[in-house]
Nucleic acid binder design. Structure first.
Lengths: 181, 181
DNA sequence: TGCCACATGTAACGCGTTACATGATTTA
DNA sequence: TAAATCATGTAACGCGTTACATGTGGCA
C-alpha cells in the first residue's frame, strides 16, 4: 500500500490534480516508485473516499484539484515512522544468475558483462540528473530527494563493481554434468 | 513470470516434488525469489499442463515427483539469455526517505540509523551463510549461488555506508514551512 | 478547423499473499 | 495413539499492468 502514501507525500507539499501528480511521478518518482495513470486515478478516488484527501477546486476539462487533509497528514507521518517489515527482495536478474550455469560459462560471462554495462548507463543517467538539479534551491522535499539519488548512484556503482568481480569468478563448466549425487 | 523459471531452474538439477521444491525455496532461494506454498503448487500444475515439466513418479501421500522436459529446458535457457527489460525498482523504504522531511530532521536521522542497523543484521546473516557453506564442494548450481551471495553482501555493505552518509546529510528543518511558491 | 495537450475514468488479466481445507505416514 | 511431518490443493483479495474509452480547451 505504498502508492497511497506516495500520493499523500506529494500532496503534503501542495495541492495538485491527478494529471499533475502523474507528471510528478514520471519526472521525480519514476526511479523510486513508478505508477501508471490508471492506478493513480483509482487510488485518488479511494483516498478521497477515505477522507485522507479532498477536492479543493474544480477546473476546466473536469480537472479536480486535491489537497491533503489533517487525517491524511497524520496517516502519512504514521507510515513514515513505522517501517513495517520490508517486502522481500525480488530480482529476476539475480534469479537468472542463480541458474546461469545452465547456459554455460561463456554465456554467463556475457550476461554479467551486460549487467555491468546496463549499470554504467544507469549511473550516467543519474549523474546527469544530479548535475542538472540545483540542490541548494530545492526546498521541495527538503533535499531528501538528494539522499535517494545518492542511494541510486551507490547502487549503480555497487552493481558495476560486482559485475566486474563476478565475471572473473564464473565457475568453469563441468566436463558434461557431474550428476554425482 | 519468474516463478516458473525458478522452478524450471531447480528441476533442471534434479527431479523433485512440490514439497521438496518448497524446501529449496525456503532454504536457498529465500533471499532471491521467495515464494509461498500455494503459489508453488499452482505454478507446478500450470507448468505440467504446458508440458515444460512432467510427473515422473508418484509416491506415498499423493507425492508427485516432477522432472523438467526438453521443452522446459529450452524455455529455461531462452529465459536465461533473454533478459527482458527489468521490472522497475520499487522500494517502500526508499520512498519513505523521499518524504522523510515531513517527519522532521530528528526522526529522519533515527530512521536512517535504523536503516544502517538493519543492514548490519542482514550482512551478518549472509556472512554466516557464507562461512557455513563449503563452496568448493557445491557442484549444485555450479557455484553461481556464490555470486548471488556476494551480491547480497555488497548490497548490504552499500546500504550501511549510504545510511551512515545520509545521516550526516539530513537537511535541517525549515523554520516552519517555507510555502514560498 | 484540426491537432495537441489536458484530463479522467473503467475493464480484464496476472501474480503474490493469506487463509482455509484435507488427508496420509512415520515415529515417539 | 497422538503429534509431527509429509503432501497437495482451493478461494478470496489486493495491487500493478495493459488496453480501452471518452471528452474539453487552447492555439496555430
Amino acid at each position: 500500500m505504498s502508492l497511497r502514501h506516495a500520493l499523500l507525500g506529494l500532496l503534503a507539499e501542495e495541492p495538485a490534480s491527478g494529471y499533475d501528480l502523474l507528471g510528478m511521478f514520471q519526472r521525480s518518482l519514476a526511479h523510486v516508485w513508478p505508477a501508471t495513470q490508471s492506478q493513480l486515478y483509482t487510488e485518488l478516488t479511494k483516498l478521497a473516499a477515505a477522507d485522507l484527501i479532498t477536492v479543493v477546486a474544480e477546473g476546466a476539462r473536469g480537472r479536480k484539484e486535491y489537497a491533503i487533509t489533517e487525517a491524511g497528514h497524520a496517516e502519512l507521518v504514521r507510515w513514515l515512522l513505522n517501517p513495517e517489515r520490508g517486502t522481500p527482495h525480488r530480482s529476476p536478474e539475480l534469479l537468472r544468475v542463480f541458474f546461469l550455469h545452465q547456459a554455460g560459462a561463456p554465456a554467463a560471462r556475457r550476461y554479467l558483462e551486460l549487467w555491468g554495462e546496463r549499470f554504467d548507463g544507469y549511473h550516467a543517467e543519474l549523474t546527469a540528473l544530479l548535475e542538472s538539479t540545483d540542490w541548494d534551491n530545492t526546498t521541495r522535499y527538503g533535499g531528501f530527494g538528494r539522499l535517494t539519488l545518492e542511494w541510486g548512484l551507490r547502487y549503480a556503482e555497487m552493481n558495476r563493481e560486482w559485475a566486474k568481480w563476478a565475471v572473473g569468478h564464473v565457475p568453469p563448466d563441468g566436463p558434461d554434468r557431474p550428476d554425482a549425487d
